[in-house]
Design a protein around this nucleic acid. Structure first.
Length: 238
DNA sequence: ACATTAATTATGT
DNA sequence: ACATAATTAATGT
C-alpha cells in the first residue's frame, strides 16, 4: 500500500460550514477561509473518544455533526456523564479556561464530524478575530451556569424533579421534532440519565415507566421521546 | 423518599 | 449465542 499524498488532495472545506456558527458568524469570508485552511476535518464513529481527560490539550474542536458526551472518569474507573454537546459548538477549549490538559473525556454519542485546530492557534484566533473570544466565552459561560443550576437541583430537588429537568434540558438542547413529540436526538440509556441526575438507573427506569403509562413520554431502548413537555415542566416545579 | 440487591426479560449484533 | 439494556419486585436505610 503506498502513502496517499494526503492533505493536498483533500477537497477544500466549504466556507458555509462555519459562516453560521456563533464564534465565526461575524467574520469576513477571507478570515473564514484562512481558518478553514488551518483546520483538520475528521469523522468519528459512535462511542469513540475525541480526546481524553487529563491528556495534553493539543487541539481544540468544532463539532460539525453529531453529538458528544462529556464524561469524567472517577478514581474507581467509572464514567459519569457531565453534559452533552450538540453540533455547532466548540469543544475541548481547554485554553479558554486556562488549562493545558483536557478537563474531561469527550465521547461521541453518535457518528460525528469535527474540525480541529492545533491549540497554539487559540491565542491568535482570540486576538485576530473580532468576536471569537466573546462568543466562545459565552458558550463556556452557558455550560458553567448549567452545571451550577444542576448542582442547586441536586441539593434542593427530589429525584423526579431532577430527572424531569434533565429531560427538558435534553429536548431543548438536543431535541428533534417528530410527529408526536420531541425525541432526544441521540442514543441515551437509563444509566446516562441517572448519572446526569445523581440517582440510579433503576429509579430512572421506574420514573420513565410511570411517565409512559401517563402518556408523558415514549421510550424504547436508547430512545426517548417526550410527548408532553408541558407536563414535565409542571412535574419539575413541585 | 429513595437506594440496593437480585432475578427476569427484552433487544441489538 | 452473547452482551448490553431495561423492567420489576423485594428489602433496606
Amino acid at each position: 500500500m503506498n502513502e496517499l499524498p494526503a492533505r493536498r488532495t483533500l477537497p477544500r472545506l466549504d466556507e458555509s460550514l462555519l459562516t453560521h456558527l456563533p464564534p465565526f458568524s461575524r467574520l469576513e469570508p477571507r478570515d473564514i477561509r484562512t481558518i478553514l485552511d488551518q483546520a483538520t476535518s475528521r469523522r468519528y464513529d459512535e462511542g469513540v473518544a475525541i480526546f481524553d481527560e487529563g491528556a495534553e490539550a493539543e487541539r481544540f474542536f468544532m463539532l460539525l455533526d453529531g453529538y458528544v458526551r462529556v464524561v469524567r472518569i472517577t478514581p474507581t474507573g467509572e464514567q459519569v456523564t457531565a453534559l452533552h454537546i450538540p453540533a455547532g459548538q466548540l469543544l475541548g477549549i481547554a485554553r479558554a479556561i486556562g488549562r493545558d490538559t483536557y478537563p474531561a473525556t469527550a465521547i461521541t454519542a453518535t457518528d460525528s464530524v469535527a474540525l480541529s485546530w492545533p491549540m497554539r492557534l487559540w491565542d491568535s484566533f482570540v486576538s485576530d478575530y473580532d468576536g471569537f473570544s466573546t462568543e466562545s466565552y459565552k458558550t463556556v459561560g452557558k455550560r458553567v451556569s448549567e452545571l451550577n443550576n444542576r448542582i442547586v437541583e441536586m441539593a434542593t430537588q427530589q429525584v423526579e424533579q431532577r430527572v424531569a429537568n434533565a429531560m427538558l434540558r435534553l429536548i431543548n438542547q438536543t431535541g428533534r421534532k417528530v410527529d408526536n413529540g420531541i425525541e432526544i436526538d441521540f442514543p441515551i440509556t437509563r444509566q446516562d440519565l441517572s448519572e446526569l441526575t445523581a440517582t440510579t438507573l433503576h429509579t430512572v427506569s421506574r420514573l420513565l415507566s410511570s411517565w409512559e403509562k401517563q402518556g408523558l413520554v415514549q421510550s424504547r431502548r436508547k430512545r426517548i421521546t417526550v410527548l408532553d413537555p408541558h407536563a414535565l415542566v409542571m412535574l419539575s416545579q413541585r
